[in-house]
């Protein structure tokens, strides 16, 4: 079994075609090359059909590249050691709640541990650890997974992957179809896991607001090719390229870019509301003479107390 360690994953000119050699052949990925550093929070963005799901299925060997190669820690993936690899790289599918099947939540979460050679007590600890990590409490363990709400089912399913203590966690649209509160909670515990457990997180989504909040680096896919690859700030700064890939930078980024046209002193690459507030506060506290810009603003300068409230 592989030692518990940080994994670095290298993709080299990876291409994938579905149903090769049939009339239904479809190129899903072509010539993808990038590295995944240990411990980073990587966002994979792209609109539907851009190849996100295909790409991440290569990471734990569910799909084999048609050409090109993937190496984990410098060595090619060995098909005989696939189980070890899958224990190390935990993949959460889109709508993971559809994978639940056991009679109790406990047994469902523990499913991935069978054959791992753990004692009952150890397995129990792992399961309890996993269920608290996804923000549910231990009362859920004895219930049937089919009687839970949609959001709870999804968390149980994610716990079923976390229980194997992967050092790389890959998630495919983990918040698809949830209400805003549910989305926020899911992303919150993912960020918390990443901070506290020293793991690599790879998040495939088209939710730019969440990527702006969480990712260090973003790879944008467009028609199965890498359109952009860089730090989150760099990627979201290139609005034109993002729009060509069918994506939009977060609303607050666009707002601040518009504001910059009248207030050139605003710095580039504001990604979150918090950053925007502190930037505007900074300008205000530096004794920025708002009055000069009165004539450019349709509504006049912003009153100070609104900043305080924020």
């Amino acid at each position: 079994m592989l030692k518990k360690e940080m994994l670095s994953i290298k993709l080299e000119s990876l291409s994938h075609r579905y149903q090769q050699g049939t009339p239904f052949e479809k190129i899903a990925l072509s010539n993808i090359t990038f590295d995944i550093e240990p411990g980073e929070f990587l966002g994979i963005a792209g609109r539907s059909g851009s190849g996100k799901t295909t790409l991440i299925q290569h990471l734990n060997g569910l799909l084999k590249p048609t050409s090109g190669r993937i190496s984990v820690n410098g060595s090619l993936v060995d098909p005989r050691k696939m189980r070890d690899l899958r224990r190390q790289i935990g993949l959460v599918f889109q709508h993971p709640e559809h994978q639940l099947f056991e009679e109790t939540v406990f047994r469902d979460i523990a499913f991935g541990l069978t054959g791992a050679g753990l004692s009952v007590a150890e397995a129990g600890d792992r399961v309890r650890d996993a269920i608290t990590a996804v923000g549910l409490n231990e009362d859920f363990l004895e219930r049937s997974p089919f009687e839970l709400s949609g959001g709870e089912k999804r968390r149980v399913a994610i716990a079923g992957v976390l229980v194997m203590k992967p050092s790389v966690l890959v998630l495919d649209e983990p918040a698809a179809g949830l209400d805003p509160g549910g989305r926020r909670e899911i992303f919150d515990f993912i960020i918390k896991l990443w901070r506290e457990r020293n793991i690599t997180v790879i998040l495939a989504t088209h939710d730019m607001e969440e990527l702006a909040r969480s990712a260090n680096r973003v790879v944008v896919l467009q028609h199965g090719r890498v359109a952009l690859n860089g730090s989150t700030r760099e990627v979201f700064h290139d609005v034109e390229a993002l729009e060509r890939a069918g994506l939009e930078p977060p609303q607050i980024t666009r707002l601040m870019q518009k504001l910059k046209k009248v207030l050139p002193e605003i710095k580039d690459g504001i990604l979150t509301v918090d950053e925007a507030v502190s930037e505007l506060k900074r300008l205000y506290q530096e004794g920025y003479r708002w009055g000069e810009y009165d004539k450019r603003f349709a509504y006049g300068p912003l009153p100070a107390r609104q900043f305080d409230a924020a």
Binding site: Q57, N60, L62, R86, Q99, F101, F111, G115, A116
Partner: peptide, 24 residues
Amino acid sequence: KSQASRCADFAFGNPLQRARNYLS
């Protein structure tokens, strides 16, 4: 695929375990 990602083995291992994996 999602059960395979949870280390369910459909090709090797003892038959009883494999049957349970198909159940999943």
